[in-house]
């Protein structure tokens, strides 16, 4: 029998970029691996820590308060950009949620300064005068093997993100605001690099995406054993209803 695969996850700045309960996503990945007999290893890289671009199959960066995001932006750009780019180039999954999504783009323009991004996604974000984009949201995604699937969640962001020519959106907004509240697009994807404004515990509302990420990150083409997802499906339906679907 072949040795069971192990999913290696690296959380970036878990003590700072965690404001909307991002640990819910990591917990989903852990349990759904464990229940299938797959290994799960979680490491972390904080401010000033070196990042090993070979050490994980999935890199996760969540959302933070303004001041924390600013400190992480500089560190991510100066200390970790090359390793993260190398990881993405070899097919590791990089998932940026909310503030983390903004940092995966080229830059985040604030009123009086610009936060540098790592440029793994061809997007730019600008903070504009006007209300934060807040509320339940549902999108239809276009992912390999999951075309037309629905993601439901919650967004809360002041930044407006616009896609460049080389970026494709993660999905089409069915309900809610999305990247900028204007063009009907939500998130961005380039290969295995994904950014989304659907913040915090996105995976608990969309167990199918957790499995898609596990499969893609392991990259061994093996199908995952099915789980009893009755509660997860009900939570997904509930989140869709909350968004007005």
């Amino acid at each position: 029998m072949p040795e069971a695969s192990t999913l290696r996850v690296c959380a970036l700045y878990p003590d700072l970029m965690n404001i909307y309960a991002d640990r819910g996503n990591l917990l989903m990945l852990r349990r759904r691996c464990e229940w299938r007999g797959l290994g799960f290893e979680l490491s972390s890289a904080g401010l000033g820590d070196p990042l090993d671009g070979d050490a994980a199959d999935l890199y996760y960066i969540g959302g933070g308060q303004d001041r924390d995001q600013e400190r992480c932006a500089a560190d991510l750009h100066d200390e970790k950009r090359e390793a993260l780019a190398a990881a993405a180039a070899r097919g590791a999954v990089v998932l940026g949620v909310c503030g983390g999504y903004q940092l995966l783009g080229h830059a985040y323009q604030l009123a009086d300064e610009e936060l540098p991004g790592v440029g793994l996604l061809d997007v730019r974000t600008e903070r504009v005068e006007g209300p934060r984009l807040i509320g339940n949201i549902a999108i239809e995604v276009d992912l390999p093997g999951a075309a037309g699937a629905i993601l439901a969640g919650f967004e809360n962001h002041a930044g407006r993100t616009r896609l460049g020519e080389r970026a494709e959106p993660l999905g089409r907004v069915l309900r809610g605001h999305g990247n900028n509240g204007a063009d009907g697009r939500e998130g961005a994807r380039a290969g295995t690099v994904i950014g989304t404004y659907m913040h915090g515990p996105l995976l608990p509302k969309n167990a199918w995406l957790a499995d898609w990420l596990i499969t893609t990150a392991l990259g061994d083409g093996a199908a995952l054993a099915p789980l009893d997802d009755d509660l997860e499906r009900r939570a997904h339906d509930e989140a869709c209803r909350a968004a007005g679907l």
Partner: peptide, 17 residues
């Protein structure tokens, strides 16, 4: 209104289904 998400939270916290 979000009963099922709470149930999922408890399940992933280790409460037997």
């Amino acid at each position: 209104t979000r009963a099922a998400e709470l149930a999922v939270r408890l399940k992933y916290a280790g409460v037997p289904e």
